[in-house]
Write a protein that binds this DNA or RNA. Sequence first.
DNA 1: CGGGATCCGGCTTGATACTG
DNA 2: CAGTATCAAGCCGGATCCCG
Lengths: 127, 127
Amino acid sequence: MDTPLDLSYDVFAKACPSRNTLEHVTGRWGGLTLGALYEGSLRFNELRRRVDGVSEKMLSQTLQALERDGLVHREAQPTNPPRVDYELTPLGRGVAERLVGLIEFVEGRMDDVLAARQRYDETRGAR
Amino acid sequence: MDTPLDLSYDVFAKACPSRNTLEHVTGRWGGLTLGALYEGSLRFNELRRRVDGVSEKMLSQTLQALERDGLVHREAQPTNPPRVDYELTPLGRGVAERLVGLIEFVEGRMDDVLAARQRYDETRGAR
DNA sequence: CGGGATCCGGCTTGATACTG
DNA sequence: CAGTATCAAGCCGGATCCCG
């Protein structure tokens, strides 16, 4: 393809496989998980505690999706009790960095956002 | 606070207002809408056609959330028939740029992702 | 044209219980 | 510890109808 810049709506088109991955990344728990792992390798229950609010099922599911996409590496040791470590792959780190860039940008402008909300809420009655 | 880098999981904490905004941005239709508007101002039904797949309700809802957060500006002309234009605010453009950066990064590595998926699926039976 | 209100089905999510 | 299986609930999102 020679599309110079294919940003925008159509990159999300249903047929586009990247949409799926993007959903894993930006989804409810994907971002949290990526963020937690961005600071270093973690075990399953450590992750569970750090992400806070995630259920075992959702964490497991999220981790599997991210692992399948090659963003997270899973290292299982067949010891007893079992020990499994999760860490970002280089690819995962690249994704996490961009994600964090977005997050920080929004965070840094939250006062603007809050001000905008207040204006909006005052102009119109409620909601 | 003196946290040098507060990325990661806790920026998403439930009490954190930015989590909400992030969800609007990264949500199912938020990204699409931001992407579509990234190319220029659009009317409601134009947007609806370009985003493709979005229902009136969801588009309306998405637009309201983004407007409330100060990312999108709504310009309504009291003509008949009514004409309403939506466009990104400077803040919205900043967010859209980061989002697009993330999207393009993932898109550019989709071959890696696809390869990782294949490896994953072959190693384990199915899913 | 640009929405709001309502209804409703389904997928996602979260407890809980169980396994290795 | 590190998950999987099952099940019920709830919210998301779509279709439809309506209004200005």
